[in-house]
């Protein structure tokens, strides 16, 4: 097949030989008479070229000039200098300083409470006393009632539970006054648990009763309340019970109460806004120490009697 194709291609190139040639006489006669003007064919393309130049060159040049002018106009419009307008700038510096309240500065306590994370209350322990105390507690003033104190002392394995009412009535007034001075009324309406003195009682261990009493006395002096009487009671009674109460009151019974107190602080932080939180904490600490003194006094009275 390739030989055939090659043969075919060769034959196709020789295909012109199969056609006749023109008559030589007529051909020569025609070629002799044919006007072979050498100049005309050369001039025609030049004329056509010149015509092309005019036909295409002039519009192209005009368009180029127009586009250039348009570009210059656009450039001028965009780069024209606008006179600068002076703008007065005023710098206002606001320095915000937060000054804490005087009561906070004065009574800023040391963190005497236990770490909430350490004392996690056991829900199965069955110590529902704090909740019950919360309910029975007056919400406005945070004073310790007669019903609460015996309830607290029942949990304590001390032997002076029968002589409680006299000591309670005496220290209760002082505690009431102290608590009323420190705790703002609005806040006490919000949270009942913030005024439960019996809850905060276990914050101070019994072994440190004297130190707590001194602190209580100092706090009361700064607040200029009736806590001065508490101070005197506390200093005297705390020294007396220092040896007895530490032995008689086991620390294990107060552990759940500690946890209750810690829980209360935690919840108060959660529910209250920040400005109230710090003040509230201070008042709580003051109240706690006062009530602790009350208990100590109660115990001392019962022991002495």
């Amino acid at each position: 097949m390739s030989k055939q194709s090659r043969n075919m291609d060769d034959l196709l190139q020789e295909l012109g030989k199969t056609f006749p040639t023109p008559d030589p006489k007529r051909e020569q006669e025609f070629l002799d008479n044919y006007p072979l003007n050498e100049e005309t064919p050369r001039l025609v393309p030049m004329q056509q070229a010149g015509r092309r130049r005019l036909v295409y060159g002039l519009p192209a040049a005009a368009m180029a000039i127009l586009m250039l002018a348009g570009g210059i106009g656009v450039w001028r419009s965009t780069h024209s200098r606008i006179p600068a307008v002076p703008v007065e700038t005023t710098t206002v510096t606001v320095i915000e300083t937060t000054v804490p309240a005087e009561s906070v500065l004065k009574t800023e306590p040391e963190p005497s409470y236990a770490d909430p994370t350490e004392a996690v209350p056991d829900p199965t322990a069955g110590t529902d006393a704090p909740e019950a105390e919360h309910r029975t507690e007056p919400a406005t003033t945070g004073t310790t009632t007669m019903q609460q104190i015996p309830a607290r002392t029942e949990t304590m394995p001390t032997n002076g539970a029968e002589t409680l009412p006299e000591a309670v009535t005496e220290t209760q007034d002082a505690a009431t006054r102290t608590t009323t001075n420190t705790i703002p009324p609005d806040h006490t309406k919000k949270d009942d648990t913030a005024q439960s003195p019996t809850e905060r009682e276990p914050v101070v261990p019994v072994e440190n009763t004297e130190t707590t009493a001194v602190q209580t006395a100092e706090t009361a002096a700064t607040e200029k309340t009736a806590a001065s009487t508490v101070h005197t009671h506390a200093t005297t009674t705390a020294a007396q019970i220092q040896t007895t109460a530490a032995d008689e009151v086991p620390s294990q019974t107060r552990v759940p109460e500690l946890t209750t107190d810690a829980t209360w602080i935690w919840t108060s932080t959660t529910y209250d806004p920040w400005p109230w939180e710090f003040t509230e904490y201070t008042s709580i600490e003051t109240t706690t120490t006062t009530i602790t003194t009350e208990e100590t006094e109660e115990t001392t009275d019962s022991l002495s009697s």
């Binding site: 012109g16 006749p20 040639t21 023109p22 051909e27 072979l36 064919p41």
Partner: peptide, 19 residues
């Protein structure tokens, strides 16, 4: 276009017209 080109072109045109 010279005479040689003209002659060649004449022959080719003739063959074409003859075909």
């Amino acid at each position: 276009m010279d005479k040689t080109e003209l002659k060649s072109l004449y022959e080719k045109l003739f063959q074409y017209c003859y075909s």
